[in-house]
């Protein structure tokens, strides 16, 4: 950032929420930097949805403080809400209204301008989430996955500065999930994205920042690189030719830190820079005649490893 202070799109301090005897949030402190894609992780019941609902003004905190796009939650939050798109965990819309009608209704709450331009924007957004063919279908006739796509469409139609998505991929088939990830990848150039997910691969793919919550407390937060780093560790199995020769030449490469034999014809290769390693490693391995690469797989710490360390396991869904 070149010394420019990073402002927070979302900031909470000692945020608490109590439901009678259950303490859902126990003093939550975290920041989501402006312009980041922040994955909000945690097991079921950890407090992810509660935090998001407080941020959206749907429920009130029992204590603490939060600010969203510079607006304190103490106020009515209308000014900040006009700059936020939100997808709740279980989106619900007027059941008898058509898909196009819902998106148009939401668009009118955020955007001012001629009807033709608004209709164009609605069509463009429906196309973006793959709902063009269902534009004239009533909401009550949509499947769970289609409802979620509609939820995403209505969340992004107002060109928000901040997108808050509670489990955007739940209920989607693999193709739908891929489309959502591609969409978020495209949107991250234009807005801050704060989203919760159980699908750690998805978070690892597009998030550059994570916040991990467990039992109502933040257990970790920060840039993804801090935890997963750029360091690459790979395990390789070779067959045929002079495998030892290949590995010796690999040791001489400046982007390789260490090559450790694991027994048989398998080795562990450590590099300080994953990006360089992934562009050059295979080339070096197959450079010698007769050597075949039987397997090459990353052995570095994944987000799932980190999550398991922090939270102690997935909660089953």
């Amino acid at each position: 950032m070149g010394g420019v202070p990073v402002t927070a799109a979302i900031e909470t301090r000692s945020l608490r929420k109590r439901y009678r005897r259950i303490e859902a949030l126990r003093g939550v402190d975290f920041e989501v930097p402006e312009g980041s894609v922040c994955g909000f992780l945690g097991p079921n019941g950890a407090g992810k949805s509660t935090t998001m609902e407080i941020l959206m003004g749907l429920i009130g905190p029992s204590g603490g403080w939060a600010s969203i796009l510079g607006d304190d939650l103490d106020g009515d939050g209308l000014r900040s809400r006009s700059r936020i798109g939100y997808l709740p965990q279980d989106p619900s819309f007027f059941p008898r209204v058509k898909v196009r009608g819902i998106v148009r209704f939401v668009a009118r709450r955020y955007l001012d301008g001629p009807s033709a331009a608004l209709d164009g924007k609605v069509d463009e957004t429906l196309d973006l989430v793959g709902l063009t063919d269902l534009a004239d279908r009533r909401v009550k006739a949509l499947s769970g996955g289609e409802l979620r796509r509609l939820g995403i469409a209505q969340a992004i139609i107002g060109d928000p500065e901040l997108l808050i998505l509670d489990e955007p991929s739940v209920g989607l088939d693999p193709e739908g999930r891929h489309q959502v990830l591609t969409l978020l990848d495209r949107l991250k150039e234009h807005m801050t994205i704060f989203y919760s997910s159980h699908i750690l691969d998805d978070v690892e793919r597009i998030a550059d920042h994570i916040v991990v919550i467990d039992r109502g407390e933040i257990v970790e937060q920060g840039p993804m690189d801090r935890y997963l780093g750029g360091r690459g560790v790979y395990q390789v199995a070779l067959a045929g030719g002079n495998g030892d020769g290949v590995l010796r030449s690999l040791e001489r490469e400046p982007w390789v830190d260490a090559v450790t034999p694991l027994g048989g014809r398998e080795w562990r290769i450590e590099t300080p820079d994953r990006t360089i390693a992934e562009s050059r490693l295979m080339r070096v391995l197959v450079a010698r005649d007769g050597v075949r690469v039987v397997s090459l797989r990353p052995a570095y710490r994944s987000l799932e490893d980190l999550y398991m360390e922090l939270v102690g396991g997935l909660d089953g869904d």
Partner: peptide, 26 residues
């Protein structure tokens, strides 16, 4: 000045913000 045909974010917050659309639905 806004170009004709373009959409602009709604910035004015009114005492009964959003009532027009809601009345339409009701």
């Amino acid at each position: 000045a806004t170009e004709p045909g373009t959409l602009t974010p709604i910035e004015r917050i009114r005492p009964l913000q959003g009532i027009g659309g809601l009345l339409g639905v009701e």
